[in-house]
Amino acid sequence: MSVIIVLIAFSSTVALAFLIAYLWAIKSGQYDDKYTPSIRILFDDKVTTKEDKNKSEENLK
């Protein structure tokens, strides 16, 4: 039965780690804005500067 004590100590540590992760997530502001990130993820990184454009055109040639 003593193994159960080890298991409980272990499971409580894991649970505590999750609690701390949750508190940290709130503190770091992850729940402040629940909408904008869902849109932001849809943006492509295709903001190109003029030089990039020229380069890609050169590559095509």
């Binding site: 409580s12 649970a15 505590l16 999750f18 609690l19 949750y22 508190l23 709130i26 503190k27 729940y31």
Partner: peptide, 16 residues
């Protein structure tokens, strides 16, 4: 935010 902390702590304790 404080309310969310409190819910987290209470929920954690509740489950365990």
């Amino acid at each position: 935010k404080r309310l969310l902390y409190k819910i987290g702590v209470a929920g954690f304790a509740f489950g365990n």
